[in-house]
Write a protein that binds this DNA or RNA. Structure first.
Ligand SMILES: NC(=O)c1ccc[n+]([C@@H]2O[C@H](COP(=O)([O-])OP(=O)(O)OC[C@H]3O[C@@H](n4cnc5c(N)ncnc54)[C@H](O)[C@@H]3O)[C@@H](O)[C@H]2O)c1
Ligand SMILES: NC(=O)c1ccc[n+]([C@@H]2O[C@H](COP(=O)([O-])OP(=O)(O)OC[C@H]3O[C@@H](n4cnc5c(N)ncnc54)[C@H](O)[C@@H]3O)[C@@H](O)[C@H]2O)c1
Lengths: 205, 205
DNA sequence: GATGCCATGTGAAATAATTCACAATGTTAA
DNA sequence: TTAACATTGTGAATTATTTCACATGGCATC
């Protein structure tokens, strides 16, 4: 099985390649992509090996073909719907950002338990009360969730998502979730990130 | 040298331990902390070995002592000032969040190149024009930066930070920065994170 | 049409991270 | 007092990830 680090890099490659493609660039060598992505050429080649795309030793990788290969590998055939739980500061920022960005992943519904936030439309996304979560998720075939509720609500909200059939969660709350093993959870721990920066900026890596 | 993954976990341990301390808990065993933090007992013990704190085989780790040990290890003696560049949706969410949260890391100034955003005070933080960045950072002895500008502005803004003496950057822009090796950069790539979730939720890990 | 050049793809080696497993230790209970 | 017990700290083993290094092959140049 491919590592999650590799998937993150491949996702980054795609984004960078799409930019290059827009600028009219047609092909790229592993060491150039590595320089742009901040890795090594060997690592780029290994990652691309995993997705089963072959470049040519003389031209390198043909950018539009490679982007397509990455998409075949990463994306689901049909697009996947995403729910966002917790329409606070961070949740709204994420809503604004993801709107019309990745065609393959679409935030189709947002939830909060604060009455002031439900029944509004924020950045084109309808907001519901968490009480309606299971119903709305099943209506929209949602299998992915982004969790941006406060720490105290995170575990409960995550369980609601799982009960509603969600298979993967991107968790921004600063606590680990206890969920069945089969649910894939990715934690984004910004507090740890800034502390890492403070530590290594001081001590050197 | 200690790994950056270990630092992230240690930062998480501290947060969890502080919560437990508030709830009145006095001591904890490695396997209990592991269960809460979502890791293995052996890993907890290894991590704590790195910071030089020893528990007792019968009581486990004394929580307030351990928190102090972690802080001695992670934190700078004096608190460290942080600058935030890019007062957009994400920047404001981060400002709101970090205000009065970590006493040791304080966002003391925010910057943007949009005239509408400068000279305001957002969540208690004064906003300046990026033209004044170097001056303000040196006046406030800022060595850390959080970068939340749009992708197109990220490289330039990062260079401004480095010129102003910043040693570590937490980068939310979706492109890798090209900076001198000695600058520590931590990238938070939310797009890659959600694509990871989509991938592994579908394929299984 | 040979030759040199350069980049790919990939086994193998190296390095990094995690887990195993157990001696050492202090506590409790008989 | 002593035996049984649970947990720590840590060398060693294991597993994961990255890097090395080179055979292979296409293309330009002579
Ligand atoms: N904003 C940041 O920069 C930042 C940084 C690090 C971590 N986080 C974490 O991200 C999460 C969100 O942060 P934020 O700044 O947006 O917080 P916030 O307080 O602005 O928003 C939290 C939202 O969650 C809602 N909520 C709380 N409990 C809920 C529940 N059980 N069900 C449904 N909705 C619920 C609240 O009504 C609120 O709208 C928090 O867990 C926070 O710790 C945020
Ligand atoms: N919001 C999210 O959920 C999210 C998710 C993933 C990545 N990001 C990334 O985080 C960054 C910020 O996202 P956002 O949603 O806050 O965007 P935003 O457009 O709301 O804010 C960007 C801010 O940066 C400022 N800016 C642009 N160029 C600048 C420069 N050279 N100097 C100073 N200020 C400058 C703009 O004036 C604006 O205020 C972007 O790079 C985005 O790609 C955001």
């Amino acid at each position: 099985m491919i590592s999650d680090k590799a998937i993150a890099r491949i996702s980054l490659y795609r984004r960078l390649l799409m930019d290059l493609h827009k600028e009219g660039r047609e092909a790229i060598f592993s060491h150039d992509l590595a320089a742009i992505a901040g890795g090594s050429a060997a690592q780029v080649r290994r990652d691309l090996m995993a997705i089963g795309y072959s470049g040519s030793p003389t031209k390198g990788y043909i950018i539009d073909e490679l982007v397509r290969s990455i998409s075949d590998f990463l994306d689901c055939a049909r697009h996947q719907n995403v729910a966002l739980i917790g329409i606070g500061n961070l949740g709204r920022a994420i809503l604004a950002y993801f709107t019309n960005r990745r065609p393959n992943l679409k935030i189709v519904a947002a939830f909060d338990n604060d009455e002031h936030k439900v029944n509004r439309v924020i950045h084109g996304c309808r907001c519901y009360h968490t009480d309606d979560l299971e119903k709305i998720l099943q209506e929209n075939d949602v299998k992915l969730g982004i969790l941006t509720v406060s720490a105290s609500g995170a575990q409960g909200a995550a369980e609601k998502l799982v009960d509603a059939g969600v298979k993967g969660i991107l968790n921004f709350a600063p606590i680990p979730l206890k969920l069945p093993r089969k649910i894939y959870v990715e934690n984004v721990d910004m507090s740890a990130s800034i502390e890492k920066v403070a530590f290594f900026a001081r001590k050197g890596k």
